[in-house]
Design a protein around this nucleic acid. Structure first.
Length: 103
DNA sequence: GCTTTGACTCTCG
DNA sequence: TCGAGAGCCAAAG
């Protein structure tokens, strides 16, 4: 199994209204490839099946989705999260510790 | 097979 | 508060 497949498989289990961080995923995979995780997300061949928009940075900031690479913007990502009952303020997750999915 | 790049994270000034 | 630097790993060229 490829590295990316493991990442996507983990992302599938993120429930609605919850988020996780790249660090959490890397930790679960027993690796420190935080960046590689983000790289895999950027490719994301499993489109809506894998909710990469529920993956944020370790400090709770949304990050990613920066125009060039995804075509979308951080704002769009935030809108999706808010739709799923995830509060976002100034690009950061509100009550991050509470909605963080630790697998 | 080495270099570049990236939706990352941590530390320090 | 915020940016810069360093460290980390995987994929693509």
């Amino acid at each position: 199994m490829n590295f990316g497949e493991k990442v996507w498989k983990l992302m599938e289990r993120i429930p609605r209204g919850r988020v996780t961080s790249y660090a959490q995923i890397a930790k679960k995979l027993d690796t420190k490839a935080y960046r590689a995780v983000g790289n895999a997300c950027r490719k994301n061949p499993y489109a809506p099946k894998v909710p990469c928009h529920r993956v944020v940075r370790s400090d709770g900031t949304v990050g990613g989705f920066g125009g060039k690479t995804s075509g979308k913007t951080v704002k769009e990502k935030i809108q999706m999260l808010r739709k799923e009952n995830v509060e976002v303020k100034n690009g950061k997750i509100v009550n991050f510790e509470e909605v963080l999915f630790r697998f």
